[in-house]
Nucleic acid binder design. Structure first.
Lengths: 241, 241
DNA sequence: CATCACAATGGCACTCAGTGCGCTCAATTG
DNA sequence: CAATTGAGCGCACTGAGTGCCATTGTGATG
């Protein structure tokens, strides 16, 4: 009765979009935004969506999950992306690209992302849930790096710290963009932030960009100079991008 | 009746130790270890402790909190420690010392810490809770650094990334020690890991080692050269680390 | 000594998230 | 046309967490 047009939706969307799932997400966010997360019960959501209470938990294992409906997919995408890496790729650059993948998931739906950001900022329970999601991303990146750094001295330590740095840089750019209500170029900010950490952890950067312009900078440095300082000096020498 | 010797306990412990709190922690861990966290209800705990159910929630806002009874105090200690910093201190070194403070809290009770580690490793809910605790530590460190880096270009970014790196290094050392059942020198491992991080993020290198060698490398590069290429060339010029 | 104030505790009832189970109804398939 | 299957629904149940009030023990005060 209520879901009479489920067949229609499936016909238009093809395979991957269960209609009820979307209806629940829409109902949930409508209520979360107008009366708050904790003031909204599951019963409120399913009533508004016009479905049975039990169905909610068939699509979302918990109340928190409805707030992050796409992260499970993004995590799977990231895993696949890393597994598809060539052995010749620079691991750190690869991990940065994986982070960009997640960022893109946010920037594809600016208004949704900003609404969710406001929610998670207010509700401690949601913040905790988001942390566990971020932890899974970071853990995935660290596992990948650990494999690539296995030969190195302190490879596991390096893997953990690089993963944490990349995630922190990504989050810094993401949160700036979210605080600005989804205005501005999040990708560019992420590129800057990620370049900052890759500079410190000595590795490579994505190719791209046009390789002309022949202004030249000369940098003199010495052994044991931290790499971030080299990068800073070069950037200073190159002037504003 | 059941708590007839409450006065005794208070007489021995003096002021800062509510006896019931300790009794609840002891009862909870006994049950958690012998039958598991999720298989233990609040009623089980309060029955074993011989107190009323309502009293549990007077001392611990949630079931998870009883597993981390000391973190609130440690967080307060860290905040106080950072606020007591002199302006002349190196902020990064100070933050590392703050991390060592937390590590010490773990190493002071090895068996307790290891037991808790085994619990949090198994129970997703506890892992999520621990993440939120770690997040508060990291946030505290980042706030401190943000204040000290305010003048710098990209100060906030740097603060976030350094804090994340320090926490990751700390956790790496801590988890190694926990996996080894509290055997080995956690402090030394933390020193190594933190030196690794500070080496990358500050001008000062782990002090040790021979600080001579003034080999110099000159790099000539041009505008829009990808930074990874600069780094690669500098590293090539500097030779093996 | 009586009693009053006060804080700590216990007991009770309630809300709500999450689960297990069995039912219905529809579409598919032999 | 059965038989099967799977999605959705309803219901009852567990357990965490909360609000409210009665009780009890303690110390101060008349």
């Amino acid at each position: 009765m209520t879901n009479a047009r489920k067949a229609d939706a499936e016909a238009t969307a093809g395979a991957p979009k269960p209609a009820m799932r979307e209806a629940l997400i829409a109902a949930a966010f409508q209520l979360f935004l107008e009366r708050g997360y904790e003031q909204t019960t599951i019963d409120d959501i399913v009533t508004l969506a016009g479905v049975g209470r039990r169905s909610f938990f068939r699509y979302f294992p918990s109340k928190e999950d409805v707030v992050f409906p796409d992260h499970e997919q993004a995590l799977a995408d990231m895993t696949a992306f890393l597994q598809a890496s060539a052995d010749t790729d620079d691991p750190v650059a690869r991990v940065c690209d994986a982070a960009r993948l997640v960022l893109r998931m946010y920037t594809e739906n600016p208004t949704f992302s900003v609404q969710r950001y406001r929610l998670t900022k207010k509700v401690p329970g949601l913040r905790a849930y988001e942390l566990s999601v971020v932890w899974r991303y970071e853990h995935t990146l660290a596992d990948f790096l650990r494999g690539r750094f296995a030969a190195r001295r302190d490879g596991a330590l390096r893997a953990n710290v690089v993963a944490a740095s990349v995630v922190a840089a990504h989050n810094h750019a993401l949160r700036s963009w979210l605080r600005a209500n989804g205005q501005g170029d999040a990708e560019a900010a992420a590129d800057r932030a990620l370049a900052y950490v890759t500079g410190a952890w000595t590795s490579q950067q994505p190719a791209s960009d046009n390789p002309e312009e022949d202004d030249v900078v000369i940098v003199i440095t010495r052994r044991r100079t931290p790499m971030w300082r080299v990068v800073r000096d070069v950037e200073a020498g190159l002037g504003p991008e």
